[in-house]
């Protein structure tokens, strides 16, 4: 029974990791660099929702649009001031600049919101009981919301004109340009989607645990592990990777101290890079 309970927690963690990893994968597939600020964009989203929760008095789920707004602004500022001017340079320079932007975001949040952990709402939630398995209402929201987003993303990528163009850009950037696909508009759409997914992941993370200026940064390693596990640049792979990482992390607490959960993600990442460096699904190369 303990195993089943941990699998439930794993699916919750996996949902959050998957939402982050889809964004990292999409950004990599279109812009060809690892976005290190992605974890902190999640944090921005979580605190954005907190602003909504505190000022308007709504639940975190209802405050998600506010979270998305904050995260999208954070990412677009970076795009215009940092990533666009540096686009023609080496991908490593973009990677390092995103690392710097991560530090800026984190410090800014700490400056405004303070270093102490906060919660969306205090008090105890009455969990649902299914035999011996206990599920908090929040967990239903998190997993249900993630499934809904994944379905919506799938429909966008497989049915809509711009979704298909995004896959075309990821497949063959030069040919997409030659076909007249507006590259820059597609880059902006990619950022908005990645930031929105990160914002939702941040809100879910805050609902699952609590808000803290390093919450997203701490999740960045599992998120990257999931993206690479699924084959970097493959959003569907990132979803699978997210759930594999999430469930393995929670299951590992049966045998090792929960404090080392993140090490499990790292171990899986290293293992994957040794056995199958292209990921479960063949990923994009630089």
């Amino acid at each position: 029974m303990e195993v089943l309970q941990l699998v439930v927690y794993g699916i919750v963690t996996g949902s959050i990791v998957a939402l982050g990893a889809i964004g990292v994968s999409l950004v990599f597939s279109i812009l060809r660099f690892a976005h290190f600020a992605h974890g902190d964009v999640m944090t921005v989203g979580a605190y954005g929702a907190l602003v909504g929760v505190t000022l308007i008095g709504v639940t975190p789920m209802v405050a998600i649009p506010v979270a998305i707004l904050f995260a999208v602004v954070a990412v677009l500022v970076a795009e215009f001031c940092l990533y666009r001017p540096l686009r023609s340079s080496h991908p490593v320079i973009l990677l390092i600049s995103s690392f710097g932007y991560a530090l800026i975001l984190r410090s800014a949040i700490q400056l405004v919101a303070g270093p102490a952990p906060q919660v969306f709402k205090s008090g105890i939630q009455i969990p649902y009981r299914f035999g011996e398995i206990v599920i908090r209402p929040d967990h239903f929201w998190i997993v249900g919301g993630t499934i809904l987003i994944i379905v919506a993303l799938h429909l966008f990528l497989s049915r809509s004109k711009f979704g298909k163009a995004m896959r075309a850009m990821s497949d063959n950037m030069d040919l997409a340009r030659i076909s007249g696909i507006p590259a820059y508009r597609m880059i902006l759409i990619t950022w908005v989607i990645a930031a929105a997914l990160a914002a939702v992941a941040g809100v879910f993370l805050g609902m699952d645990t609590r808000l803290h200026p390093v919450m997203g940064w701490r999740l960045l390693l599992p998120v990257f592990a999931a993206a690479i596990l699924g084959g970097i640049g493959r959003p569907y792979g990132a979803i699978a990777g997210g759930f594999i990482i999430g469930i393995s992390m929670e299951l590992s607490t049966m045998v090792i101290d929960p404090g080392y959960k993140h090490a499990v993600a790292f171990a899986l990442l290293v293992l994957m890079l040794i056995i199958r460096p292209t990921g479960l699904f063949r990923g994009t190369s630089l």
């Binding site: 298909k164 163009a165 896959r167 075309a168 063959n172 040919l175 007249g180 696909i181």
Partner: peptide
């Protein structure tokens, strides 16, 4: 590199009409 390899024939043609 004159096609979109992961996309279907139909989708390749659609991209031509973007």
């Amino acid at each position: 590199r004159n096609v979109f390899p992961s996309m279907s024939v139909q989708e390749n043609l659609e991209m031509g009409a973007f």
